[in-house]
Design a protein around this nucleic acid. Structure first.
Lengths: 228, 228
DNA sequence: TAGATTGTTAATCGATTAACAATC
DNA sequence: TAGATTGTTAATCGATTAACAATC
């Protein structure tokens, strides 16, 4: 494995490569060239080779890449050959949504504890898991060797929740709260703003609509001209 | 508004600008310069001005930007001055998670119908909404003037679901299924791969871990040298 | 050996940042 | 008017693509 800092653009493509490699394995495909992979995944063959060579020469000249071999390498690069223990903070609608979502994971990432500040929710169960008192978070993270904290609190509580998680020793934070938070440099941070994604969708819908309107106008112009 | 194609990088920053502008409005701030905004949001002042000027000159020389004015402009650009009607496909764990999530929206985006293929789920209620028969999707979309389809089906059904939504006339698709789908050019597509995001988090956690290990090694080397 | 395909260097493209003239 | 800050052009930086020598 090489040394220089890998750009985020590359890292964000790795999980996608992985998904396609898993599908190929399921289909029993044993090897693939960068060109074939390009046709499948939509990146240029050049980019695929460039991306992979950030981490090492996984291919073989004149042959291509072993599907299983490459998939294993990417798993190792992403750290998916390990198990991660997580806690989830917040039991409101967002928290319940994300808890539900984590249930779709087969393995690798497990929610071990679910915490909430609001007294009336503490002690109740949801989706078969008891909701714990936020006050006990730090000792829980330490005792249960938690790696990742998922923040699904409201805007106001998110930074405080992150601070406490970092203090307790998590190595990564997955933030769904609708606010940007800061963490110390030794903690990894990944942010998901679902509403930002929906707003981008709205933009693109309106963009298409405008383009169509403009085209229609151009057509009318042409008709006008012809009638003159 | 100008003409040339706006890059996705710019579009994906707009919702973020908007969030900060809403917060500023709440705090009663009336104007902001690109430099002040830069300190707050973390983009360079130059980038902020460059981004905004893709859409028009919203500022005033020597003064800055009106917080409310700019926020309204961005709302209009993103199309958030409209209401969107949505259907959700899939009532498994993922579908339930996303349905729950949509309940956190105050307004602007409303799930009007929830559909599922599996006969044993059809007719039941979840989160206070009845789950409808997928067979009735097309007529529902037409009758209810649905704008957006949210795909939360399993991998295998996602493309077929997208085809049917497009046929029925939706203008946009928000895809949460763990597979890439294709849509015709007049339909906008926005993809959310939550697991990809989690995998990127795992990468960054391991990256930090490796760096720390390497630093520890360097320290040992130095101690070794000293002891010689 | 010849053909294929990688790994890697060089060229291009696009996005970000810097600089500054325009103007409120 | 002088000071401030935008809008916009030019310079830089980084990421993608093209080309090709290395090699299986």
């Amino acid at each position: 494995m090489k040394n220089a800092k890998i750009s985020n653009a590359v890292i964000n493509r790795l999980p996608r490569y992985r998904r396609y490699l898993i599908e190929l394995q399921k289909k029993g495909v044993e090897k693939i060239s960068s060109k074939e992979f390009s046709n499948l995944i939509g990146y240029t063959a050049s980019q695929i080779r460039q991306d992979l060579n950030n981490f090492g020469g996984f291919g073989q000249q004149g042959y291509g890449y072993s599907v299983k071999g490459l998939c294993d390498e990417i798993n190792a690069i992403l750290g998916l050959d390990q198990e991660y223990r997580m806690v989830l903070l917040g039991a409101g609608n967002l928290g319940q949504a994300i808890y539900k979502y984590t249930k779709t994971f087969k393995r690798g990432f497990k929610v071990c504890g679910w915490f909430e500040v609001k007294k009336d929710l503490i002690g109740t169960s949801s989706e078969g898991m008891e909701i714990l008192d936020y006050e006990g978070l730090v000792s829980f993270v330490e005792k249960e060797k938690i790696d990742i904290g998922i923040i699904c609190t409201d805007r106001e509580s998110a930074q405080e929740a992150a601070d406490r998680l970092c203090f307790a020793g998590v190595k990564g934070i997955w933030n769904f709260a609708r606010v940007d938070i800061e963490v110390p440099p030794h903690v990894a941070l990944e942010v998901v703003h679902l509403s930002d994604s929906l707003h981008a969708l709205a933009y693109h819908m309106n963009d298409i609509k405008k383009k169509e309107a403009k085209e229609a106008e151009t057509r009318e112009h042409r008709i006008d001209k012809r009638q003159k």
